[in-house]
Design a protein around this nucleic acid. Structure first.
Length: 402
RNA sequence: GGGGGUGUGCCCGAGUGGUUAAAGGGGCUUGGCUGUAACCCAAGUGCGUAAGCUACGUUGGUUCGAAUCCAACCGCCCCCA
């Protein structure tokens, strides 16, 4: 049968690294059209971290594209799987969370996810709903559906095993749980990062074992972090949070390496492919500025995007000070003869975490009062109301005398 | 159950009795450079105004002196069963 991919099919497959298998997806797509029945698109998320970043947003955006093409989004909150911890791509066992923590995280997670997904057209499930019901015997039966050899084929376990690092038994169960989710929700397509390949494919096996039509697995690239090398992750400190302030999103985006811009455009924004090419043809600074504005607009709005850019130009390009600075009310007992020890001031204002650190900052020439460098760590300085204290390029406090 | 290893600062990792607050790297901070909060370069990086204090899994010992030796305990890894 000659499948003619329509525009939304192209949109929905764009950016995918692998589709297992594309033929099956075409078939499902066509059947869905013929029968007027939307495909069920599954995305499972473990709310291990309440802070979503633009890397997490990649599969969510993909899900949104499916929604826009008229398909049924099935978002699974892994309240049980989060308690196990996904071993994918990890070189050590994930710390497990308590169920209460997970429920709490899930709350904030969802709030953020609805910035991307269309809430009214999303079917929301908690996998605890079915795992809670299972008896120990059921669990054992589930474990019997795969083998140790298959588990050890995985590159991450392989590495840990040969490197003498621990693999806890419960980590073997994780993929089975995720695969079982697919059975329970009768997924037609499951989305995930490339690191999810193993888990995704196991879903196909279990579905077949259950006599269901196997899901299609679509893997998406992992977005690199702001360092341009490792995948975006909060623990690497290279992430851009979708709840970050406009200034932060803008600044962090400006700090990505030029080579990463294409990935960011294709994976993290909703620009069309031709628009992306157009922007990439600009000079790198303008292009990156556009990218930064686009990201801010996505998670805040147009006005915020403009303000963030102005802030960036003001503070970093011109080295000036921003308009709205957090105030610090100088405590009276810091003053001796109307003067204050610079080190103490920096610490009390919350710009350094210890006296020694503050002293270092001063000695390195990173501390300024109203643009005047203070580089003597013993200095006692006179203050006036409204003075701006600055540490490094990006930490400011407006001093308020009481 | 038997045997062998191992546990160091935010992370990785050197260090087997004394100038060790502890090499080296990563990270981070500050400075310089820059279109950039990137790259690169440089410096710094336990706490304390200071005297000094705290730190090498835990506890207790040996010693003038221990991250370094001993004992027990706790955690982890490997091999054999």
């Amino acid at each position: 049968m000659g499948f003619v991919p329509d525009e939304s099919f192209q949109e929905v497959t764009r950016g995918a690294v692998t589709i297992d298998t594309e033929e099956e997806l075409q078939k499902k797509w066509q059947a869905s059209k013929d029968r007027q029945q939307p495909l069920r698109i599954k995305l499972g998320v473990d709310p291990t971290n309440p802070q979503l970043h633009v890397g997490h947003a990649v599969p969510l955006r993909k899900m949104r594209q499916f929604q826009d093409a008229g398909h049924q989004a099935v978002l699974i909150i892994g309240d049980y799987t989060a308690c196990v911890g996904d071993p994918s791509g990890r070189d050590k066992t994930r710390p497990t969370l308590t169920h209460d923590q997970v429920r709490e995280n899930a709350e904030t997670y969802l709030q953020q996810a609805w910035k991307i997904l269309d809430k009214d057209r999303t079917e929301l499930c908690w996998n605890g709903d079915w795992f809670r019901e299972m008896s120990f015997l059921d669990v054992i039966a589930l474990c019997g559906r795969t083998t140790v050899a298959r588990q050890l084929e995985r590159d991450d376990f392989q590495k840990r095993f040969s490197g003498g690092l621990p693999i806890n038994l419960h980590e073997f169960i994780y993929p089975l749980m995720q695969a079982w989710d697919s059975v329970k929700v009768r997924a037609d397509v499951e989305l995930g990062g490339t690191d999810q390949t193993f888990n995704l494919l196991l879903g196909r096996d279990l579905m077949r074992q259950e006599g269901l039509e196997a899901q299609v697995c679509m893997t998406l690239p992992l977005l690199v972090g702001t360092d341009g090398s490792r995948k975006m992750s909060k623990t690497y400190g290279n992430s851009i949070g979708i709840t970050d302030s406009p200034e932060e999103i803008f600044g962090k985006t400006m700090s990505i390496p030029d080579e990463a811009m294409r990935d960011y455009f294709t994976l993290a924004t909703d620009l069309s492919l031709s628009e992306i090419e157009e922007k990439l043809a600009l000079n790198p600074r303008e292009c990156k500025g556009f990218l930064a504005r686009t990201l801010v607009r996505l998670y805040h709005d147009e006005a915020a995007a403009e303000a963030a850019e102005q802030h960036f130009v003001q503070v970093f390009s011109k080295g000036g000070i921003p308009d709205d600075i957090e105030e610090y009310a100088v405590q009276g007992d810091l003053l001796e003869d109307g003067k204050v020890w610079i080190v103490k001031l920096v610490v009390e204002a919350g710009l350094s975490s210890s006296n020694n650190e503050a002293r270092r900052n001063v000695q390195a020439g990173g501390v300024r009062l109203d643009d005047l460098r203070v580089d003597d760590a013993d200095a006692r300085v006179e203050l006036s109301d409204g003075m701006v204290l600055r540490v490094g390029k990006r930490k400011f406090r407006k001093l308020k005398l009481v």
